[in-house]
Each structure stands twice: as C-alpha cells, then as structure tokens.
C-alpha cells in the first residue's frame, strides 16, 4: 500500500492532487474563520454540482492534450448541447432520458468531426477547433436564440439532486471510466500517439483513428457537461460554453498534463477543475471583491505550473545526487 501511495503521489497527476489539497485546506480555513463553523453538507453539495460540468470538460480536454492537441471547440459543443438540452428535453418517464442519450450522441458526433479534420485533413488542432468553435456556437444560437428553456425535474433528481449527492455517483463513474480506459489498448495508444506519433505509427498504432476517437470522446465529455450544466442551472443559454474553453485548459494545466503531449492523467485534470472552482469560493469567503476573481485564477494558474516545474527540478537534482 505505501508503495502504491508513493506511486500515486509521484505520478503525473501529483501536481493536481497537491494543488487541490492546498486549495481545499485554504477553503476550510477561510470558511471556518469567517462563518465560525465547518462547511455544511449543503456547501459540499453545491460545490459538487457547480463543479461537475467543468470536471467533464476537463476530462475531454486532458485526453486531447495527452495526444498533443488542444480542443477550443469544447465551448461550442457545450453551448450547442446546452441549447438542445434546454429546448428539447421534455416529458416524463423515460422520454427525457432517451433525449439525453441522443444529446450525448450529438456531442460525440461534433467531436468526431474535429477528429476527422485534425487526423485526415491534417489541419493543426488549435486551428481546426477554432473554426469548428465558430460553427458549433452558431448552431447553438440557431437552436436557442435567447436564454431560456427548461429541464424536467425528473432529470434533475437523477443528475444533480439538490438534496442527495447523486453527483458523487456520476463523478465516481467518471473516475472509474478513466481508470479502465487508461488500462485498455486504446488508452495505451493514446499515450503512444502523444509521446511520439511517428514512432507510434511505425509500430502499427492507427494514429489517425486514435485521434478521431479522442476528439469524439472530448465531444462526449462536453455533451455530458452540457447536460449537467442545464440540470444545475435549470435553464439554457447559447453563450454558456464560452467560459469552459479557457477554464478547461487551465484545469488540464493545473492537473499536470503536459502540453507537449504523452504525459498526464485525466484524474489530475479533474482535481485541477475542482481546485479552480474552489478558488472562487475561497475568494468569496475571504471577502475579496469578486471583480478581482480572474486575477487570482490567473496567478493560481501560473504559480501552480511554476511549482510543478520547481518540484520536477528538485526531484531531478535529488536523483542526480543519489
């Protein structure tokens, strides 16, 4: 067990865990000194439910970044799926859930389009997804021109129940899904493509197909985020996706996923996403003017990366000394 623990702490996601722990401790300190008691279960539940969409987008973004790419279109796919969820998911019984499945398929298809353009047409990921971001955002505006829509309460009860932490089930499923995926042949190939695509192709990894699948998965994650977003806010907005572009990249960075590809873990990105959401709560409870929010998020991002680089340098120096 200690061996396992050590491996966990020195793994690629360790930066994410360290940052998350530090942020969580700060949150608890700031909360208790200001309100005189520990956070209640209501606080934890609201953190969980507001952070879930970003967690999902961050998982998708981390997969893409591990292959050495970047996905700016997550903002467009989230917006498109939010618009469809808020306007089309009606009725009672199982009908809304059938719609939710259709929306997940829609997100996956959008992501697959990105993948095909990146892998087959060989346009750089940042440019492909910049162009498709515009297309998917346009589709979102077409479906939902003005903010509005609704979500059946039955869906809310299952996805982000405001009294029972159903969100935990979905979060655990996401963690489990990643742990399984990473050990499959597909998971190994994702890392292979990210570390060295030419070598991966040379040993017979179908790099193009892997990339298409990874972008499709990122689209699926964005669709999941959209569904949870509408479930928490109970309405849709065609501009809902915008903030996820930069925050998902920030989560991935804080989570210790390397932009050069081939290194990192979705678990780190998930930890990064939760930490970034917690920072906002810390600022709130510390009584800092919310106008300064992005200042602290920006500093948080750069400092987290600098700490990661510093830790890596120290580790290397220590290894050298031994």
């Amino acid at each position: 067990m200690p061996d396992r623990l050590r491996r966990l702490l020195s793994g690629p996601a360790s930066l994410g865990y360290a940052v998350l722990t530090a942020t969580a401790v700060t949150y608890l300190l700031v909360y208790t000194t200001n309100l005189g008691h520990l956070p209640t279960s209501f606080d934890y539940l609201s953190i969980l439910n507001t952070t879930l969409p970003l967690v999902f987008v961050a998982i998708g973004q981390s997969l893409v970044v591990i292959t050495g790419g970047i996905d700016l279109s997550v903002g467009g796919i989230v917006a498109f799926c939010v618009a469809v969820t808020a306007t089309r998911v009606h009725g009672s019984g199982l009908t809304p859930f059938a719609w939710l499945l259709a929306i997940l398929a829609l997100g996956t298809a959008c992501g697959a389009v990105n993948g095909v353009i990146v892998a087959r047409a060989r346009i750089a990921p940042i440019l492909t997804t910049l162009a498709t971001l515009s297309i998917f955002s346009g589709l979102a505006l077409w479906v939902l021109p003005v903010p509005g829509g609704s979500i059946p309460s039955g869906v809310r009860m299952v996805l982000t129940n405001p009294t029972v932490p159903t969100g935990l089930i979905w979060l655990s499923l996401a963690v489990l899904g990643w742990l399984v995926l990473r050990r499959t042949r597909f998971g190994m190939r994702v890392y292979a493509v990210g570390s060295d695509e030419t070598s991966a192709v040379a040993i017979g990894v179908p790099a193009a197909r892997i990339k298409i699948a990874v972008y499709a998965l990122s689209g699926l994650c964005s669709a999941l985020a959209a569904v949870f977003y509408v479930s928490t806010t109970t309405a849709g907005d065609a501009n809902a996706g915008g903030p996820f572009i930069l925050t998902s990249i920030a989560s991935v960075v804080v989570g210790g996923v390397a932009f050069s590809g081939g290194r990192g873990s979705a678990l780190g990105a998930m930890a990064g996403a939760v930490a970034l959401t917690l920072v906002i709560d810390v600022i709130f409870f510390a009584g800092i003017d919310p106008l300064y929010q992005s200042l602290f998020q920006g500093l948080f991002l750069v400092v987290a990366v600098l700490l990661g680089t510093g830790a890596a340098l120290i580790a290397r120096a220590r290894r050298g000394a031994l």
Binding site: I70, L246, I249, A250, V253, F259, L291, Y292, Q293, S294, L295, F296, Q297, G298, L299, F300, L301, V302, V305, L306, T309
Partner: peptide, 18 residues
C-alpha cells in the same frame, strides 16, 4: 521560467482582467 506560452499568457490574461 520555462512556463508554456499557453499557460503564461492565459494566466496573464486573467491577471490583467482581474
């Protein structure tokens, strides 16, 4: 400092916005 350009300038955008 060797910070990746995406991270450095994204963080700086946040700092400037704040």
């Amino acid at each position: 400092l060797g910070v990746p350009a995406v991270v450095m300038t994204l963080g700086m955008n946040g700092v400037m916005q704040g």
